[in-house]
Write a protein that binds this DNA or RNA. Sequence first.
DNA 1: TAGATTGTTAATCGATTAACAATC
DNA 2: TAGATTGTTAATCGATTAACAATC
Lengths: 217, 217
Amino acid sequence: MNAKINRPTAERLSLYYHYLKEHISPAEATVSSQQIADIIKVDPTLVRKDMAAISLRGRPRAGFDIEQAKTRIREVLGFNTVHRTVLVGAGRLGSALAAYPEFRDYGLHILALFDTNPAKIGTFVGARMIYAMSELSNIVRSQNVEMGIITVPADTAQSVADQLVAAGVTGIWCFSATQIHTPANVVVRQEHLSAGLADILYRQAVKRHEQVEQVAE
Amino acid sequence: MNAKINRPTAERLSLYYHYLKEHISPAEATVSSQQIADIIKVDPTLVRKDMAAISLRGRPRAGFDIEQAKTRIREVLGFNTVHRTVLVGAGRLGSALAAYPEFRDYGLHILALFDTNPAKIGTFVGARMIYAMSELSNIVRSQNVEMGIITVPADTAQSVADQLVAAGVTGIWCFSATQIHTPANVVVRQEHLSAGLADILYRQAVKRHEQVEQVAE
DNA sequence: TAGATTGTTAATCGATTAACAATC
DNA sequence: TAGATTGTTAATCGATTAACAATC
């Protein structure tokens, strides 16, 4: 029974990475946990804990080495490995994601797109061709694809997920507005656009409510 | 000093809502906390607490009234109010979001799009016209726009946010890959696509690691 | 009625934060 | 050196879960 490892969330690590990548003047070689904490809006102790958890040591008075931290976070998050991926659903959102230039820098290589629309099959989005669904299994197997991105309408998302899983992917990133179900060995991340919307609307409402209360006091 | 209200997260509420909307046979009028919990992968006690927190009472033996729950969640999350919105950045992602049909059902009314590309100005995405940035302030003010969606490249996101705030929006939903800063009275939700990617890659890596450990035992 | 399911209090758990000695 | 900042233990906090009497 090991002591519980306090695994830092991938989200926080990726926020640190962004900060290190963008918000630092090239003249400075180190950052303090406090500097990071100020921007990410998090406690400096938590930053130090996260860093320690991924074996990054800082230097008292100086802080953490920026280059070293960037490298280590990339490593931990898997950005340095090539992740062979296909995208199913070459609509607007799918095309937008396929064209997202940053993905490549994070190791995400989208090898092929798939769609059911015969008019789209054989055409290109950037350098990637759109294939018929009947090719999915072959391509996933022969190209050793490990991840599938789903950007189809909600009512076909589960069927697409099933096909991807049957063909052997171990990860699914789903942008369709429905909960998909997969075997336990497949990692699924569901992006709930409407949950994001709910969150912002709710927080606006809470804020208005608080302001009313303050006036009432 | 009130007792702490255990505010349910908007994300959970929106997941409940989806479940109620989609996963229930029209023949049944109620659901138990257990049924919801099974699908959402959450403890049934937590579901009951969340329901209680938004003043939904269930009936022992029966559970919660589905119609009543849907209505109440919509109310709490603000889906029943019209949220007047503009979208800045009519690229692929922006157009995809503007065309997303479900948003309307959640109260999100995108009134106008904006872009800097002169070739796009005056053209339409669905029924919405694309305007020049110089029109932003006028339209936000005259149409009482409360929210802005940002889908521009990272390097111009802050400037767009500043313009939206200056024009009077109280909420910003930002899809650009950068952290934007706003006054405290503005609610911001930052969608970090790369954080989502980091999360799924990280979980795949953790899972592989666990499997190796199991074999080693 | 019997028993399934709620509503709520108390217990647990883990994540975050405070505190502070160690150290460059 | 003096003092800023780390690394880590202990304290706090809040969210989740367990337990169970109330109730339809």
